[in-house]
Amino acid sequence: MPRPFTPKVVTANALLEGDVVYFTTDNTWTRELTQAEVLTDEADADLRLIDASRQQDQIVGAYLADVDPTPEGPKPTHFREEFRRTGPSNYFHGKQAEL
């Protein structure tokens, strides 16, 4: 049996700054994971990834990342995505300082 599809967001890095960004329902990019479009259907997720990847003038390296949908918005399920959402642990730099 195929594994059940888990909720995802499309994420990438911004072309100019390199910042971690997430794809929204209106085809734009946000710095905040809570604003991201949560994809719960596999076929839909694949299509949204294609849509997102077309925006080569804005982003680099779009991919689907697992999230846990919560009432406060999507949260990362893996520590790598947690670091991407927050920033490094040795300095107060990156998103934790800027958002």
Binding site: G18, D19, Q56, V60, G61, R80, R84, G87, G94
Partner: peptide, 20 residues
Amino acid sequence: TEDEFKPLRLMNGLYLQLHA
């Protein structure tokens, strides 16, 4: 495109990492 640019930036030491 990024596919075209990536080898060029890497030849000049520019990586894309987790946050930047």
